[in-house]
Amino acid sequence: MDLLDNLTKTFFDFQAMADVLPQLLQVGLVNTLVISLAATAIGCVLGMMIALMGISPLRWLRWPARVYTDLFRGLPAILTILLIGQGFARFSQQLFGPSPYPLGIIALSLISSAYIGEIFRAGILAVDKGQLEACRALGMGYGRAMRLVVVPQGIRRVLPALVNQFISIVKDSSLVYFLGLLVSERELFRVGQDAAVLSGNLSPLVLAGLFYLIVTVPLTHLVNYFDQRFRTGRRKAAPPVSGLREVAELETAGTAESR
């Protein structure tokens, strides 16, 4: 009984939770979402460039993309964030002022772009090569064919993987606290941790965790929904139509008439 009481006080101190709730909502959640969405957006743009370089027929575009990807996928996120966040602090000071917040976003963007680049690359490569060929046969240049036809198809089929990547960024965004954020810039984890120090128990962190779950769990289910939809397609079940009907239709249209 004593143990249970102890656990309850440690993890489910509702008063401590209630105290930190406004901050988690107004500061933590907002910053977590801002950081994650910004990092995902920048990551998608960079990732697309990396992906296109990675599938380029030109070797001098391919290998820098390869090195970049290996680098940022191979390093622990925390190390990249510290190296970027502290290493470029002086640059950042001139550009964005003293806050390390933008650098945190940039570091996360670089990390996510390496993963997103691989996602895009796989998606684009999975598009039937007949698509590119059909475009080329119609007189489209490589760039236009990729932009109008191949890349959109590639993106569509990797949407589930992109949502997964976003979830991972949401979680990694907690690492930005290492850079030392201003009070108003703290994300969910930091807000929870600061409150935990004050309350003397872990309940604020439990609540912060709950917030993460509120963001991520619906998304994982969205992924499953996406996946299902893409796999089965949107085609509605229709009664079978005889091929002969089409033959008859053609004959009446007059176009099937031979010379």
Partner: peptide, 21 residues
């Protein structure tokens, strides 16, 4: 330029290669 040439030569493939979207 191959792109210029291909605008004058149409091609039809075995597997159609229509743009599915």
């Amino acid at each position: 330029q191959p792109d210029q040439l291909r605008r004058k030569i149409g091609m039809v493939f075995q597997h159609f290669n229509l743009f599915p979207d």
